[in-house]
Design a protein around this nucleic acid. Structure first.
Ligand code: SF4
Ligand code: SF4
Lengths: 144, 144
DNA sequence: GTTTATTAGGATAAATTTGTCTTATTTAAA
DNA sequence: TTTAAATAAGACAAATTTATCCTAATAAAC
């Protein structure tokens, strides 16, 4: 469904958010250990997330990544997916047709539109806050 | 959502089905022209579909691809997707965790499960027959 | 039987995604 | 002010996906 980069990006953001809720800034090494992802590749993804103002990066000793507590609830899944994978999955065609036009629909249009719209709705409504708190209370997990 | 190979595979199968409903066997060149796909790559995908008994291939002059009329309604979208992309999208994790266990869910589990199950249900219920007839009556299109 | 039109299969190539490595930059701490 | 710990950036490498090309196999038509 999502690219590897996007999966790592979502997992990383959730972990950073959970730590930020507890007042902790976390560094690359810790993040990739906790989300079980390749270190250097994760660095690239975190850079992308920082450029898209989804997370903050701080250089130097004691540096790392964090999210302002007040922003955590306004970051939605769709922001991360759009930043890393583009919004193709939310707006593109199920059969990959280039020019998408509902007046000249592809054969799967009527079936796919519903799935795609639900995915978009879910991604727009699901906040990193709710995903991070599930992790914080031990209801959900980022590894295995 | 699906790989390019899978998109071409679905489009090709729908086209072959539509022609088969009209009693026509179609060859590679015509298929890739009508679904606007790379010829040689499409050949590989058709091979895969034939091996998975989704379409029939016939060699030699007047050869080509076809589907038995009586089978067209029993071929569902999920058969094509599973044959080409595997069933990962229907059963795998939204965050790419390897060992999937609902008792130790990933943070997006509760949100994703619904989307994923709907996609699976839709793909299991949507037959190539219904997609092919939409194309046949000019309601839907395979190019653009 | 020969030719010709078709699919099958294998080798190769190009493009993209995934991942690594090295160096530069920043900045807190010593 | 120097050192050390962290991210940023760019070059590179590996793996996968997408795509092409060439030859073999098949079988209808001549
Ligand atoms: S017809 Fe529907 S599924 Fe196809 S391209 Fe347009 S919006 Fe997308
Ligand atoms: S927890 Fe849910 S979404 Fe995550 S791997 Fe298991 S089934 Fe998939």
């Amino acid at each position: 469904m999502f690219s590897k980069a996007c999966e790592y990006g979502i997992r990383a953001t959730i972990y950073i958010a959970m730590q930020s809720l507890q007042g902790n800034r976390v560094n690359l090494k810790e993040i990739s250990k906790e989300i079980d992802s390749p270190v250097a590749f994760t660095a690239k993804i975190l850079q992308q997330l920082a450029k898209n103002d989804i997370i903050n990066s701080v250089k130097g000793p004691t540096g790392g990544f964090e999210i302002n507590k007040k922003d955590i609830d306004s970051i939605k899944l769709i922001h991360i997916v759009s930043a890393i994978d583009s919004d193709k999955i939310f707006n593109g065609c199920g059969l990959g047709l280039k020019e998408c036009n509902e007046d000249f629909p592809c054969p799967v249009h009527f079936q796919f539109k519903e799935i795609r719209d639900n995915l978009k709705k879910m991604s727009s409504e699901t906040s990193i806050y709710e995903l991070a708190t599930g992790l914080e209370v031990g209801l959900t997990f980022l590894k295995r």
